[in-house]
Design a protein around this nucleic acid. Structure first.
Lengths: 213, 213
DNA sequence: AAAATTATTAACCATTTGGTTAAAATTTTA
DNA sequence: TAAAATTTTAACCAAATGGTTAATAATTTT
């Protein structure tokens, strides 16, 4: 019962509005007044709760950066799955994340390039440990019969193949699909299996033909 | 003889300075005063030559967007090369371009997402014809034994694998190499052969094992 | 219910910023 | 070389913007 409309508290409304505006327009493009309007409150409240634009932005950015690095490492380290299953799970989860947060890639790339220093700070405070990554390279390398360095490149290629279709949406939609957003979305849907297939077929191709072209 | 220092004309100095500032900071982050300082001229001259910030920006953006879509289609359509050679050439040229213009990917992605409408306009005025792209899919599909749709995904994956390491430099450098930029540059150098190998091995893997995992 | 604390607002402020103007310097033309 | 044109500059302007303040409203505490 009592299905009353739940009034979000002011801080929550601000965070929600700030996320929308910042992810869409970036720190430089966002206006405090716009965030206030979007939240339906007075502009002074933004400063009352978050002191400054910079501080409010950092609050949002910290959360979004953590979303951008989801818990994918456990998947790659699991000993319950074959590497083929790991790849499928990894790509599945990552693309699903971006389907739910389509602006996340462009936002993170924009802000990380605007202020490259900031990422070092967030990396150490977050649970993104590049220590575990070394372990991932080792384990996967063993399973796939690749060197650590080859796994590194393969990982970047896989991540690239997941992220770029979202970060480059306006280009892809316009250049490849003449602005037809249905076709673009269709393309994204296919992406999960396509990317996983790529990686898996690559590994199969390597096992058989070694180096000769 | 006469190795006198060539004084660029004002318009050239402005364009050069505007390119540096805009590509690094974006339209929203750039300041007209900073561009003037960078060019070593009075701010009013920017308006004398280019009317407004927006107009100056568009002049730069038009050029950079064309750089971003280099003449790669002829490579893919050539009938002088096998598809393996085409892939190597394509990846080589594209990564070489970004090694020479490291900020190009981040800049284009940032601005294209800030104002997605603008790309439609530039696409039609430029020589980026998505008509030729259909032809590319068909030709490559035939050569590689793939459907047009599979070629599309393969193309995006290849382009992604070339672009993302540059667009995501701060992330990759920090997360994967603990901020060591020498290691990051080393990684970029290896990238040309790695990406091409990836695509080529994928195709070999497909030819042999069809579907079964 | 009075006092104290917290939340919210309208009005205001200082600075930044894109853009203008009118005069001066330079170059071109006649 | 004088006039006409183009180029360059310093000073200025209006709007936008992040931020503050002081008063008011709402809530919590005593």
């Amino acid at each position: 019962m009592t299905p009353q409309k739940i009034e979000k508290d002011t801080e929550g409304k601000i965070l929600e509005a700030a996320k929308r505006v910042f992810t869409l327009k970036g720190l430089d493009g966002a206006r405090m007044q716009e965030i206030a309007d979007e939240a339906g409150i007075n502009k002074a409240l933004l400063h009352y709760y978050f002191r400054s634009k910079e501080k409010l932005f950092m609050t949002i950015f910290r959360v979004e950066l953590n979303n951008f690095f989801p818990r994918l490492i456990p998947i790659l380290l699991s000993d319950e799955w074959t590497y083929v299953q790991k790849i499928r799970h990894f790509v599945d989860e990552y693309i699903e994340l971006f389907l739910k947060n389509p602006f996340l890639p462009a936002f993170v790339l924009r802000e990380v390039n605007r202020n490259p220093q900031v990422i070092a700070h967030f990396i150490v405070e977050s649970d993104i440990q590049s220590g575990k990554l070394k372990e991932v390279m080792r384990v996967l390398g063993k399973e796939m019969g690749l060197s650590s360095n080859e796994v590194l490149h393969l990982l970047i290629t896989t991540v690239s193949a997941c992220i770029f279709p979202f970060a480059g949406k306006p280009i892809i939609e316009q250049v490849l699909f003449n602005g037809n957003s249905d076709e673009y979305n269709q393309f994204l849907q296919e992406r999960k299996t396509m990317v996983a297939d790529f990686v898996i077929c690559y590994l199969k191709g390597r096992q058989i033909s070694n180096g000769n072209e």
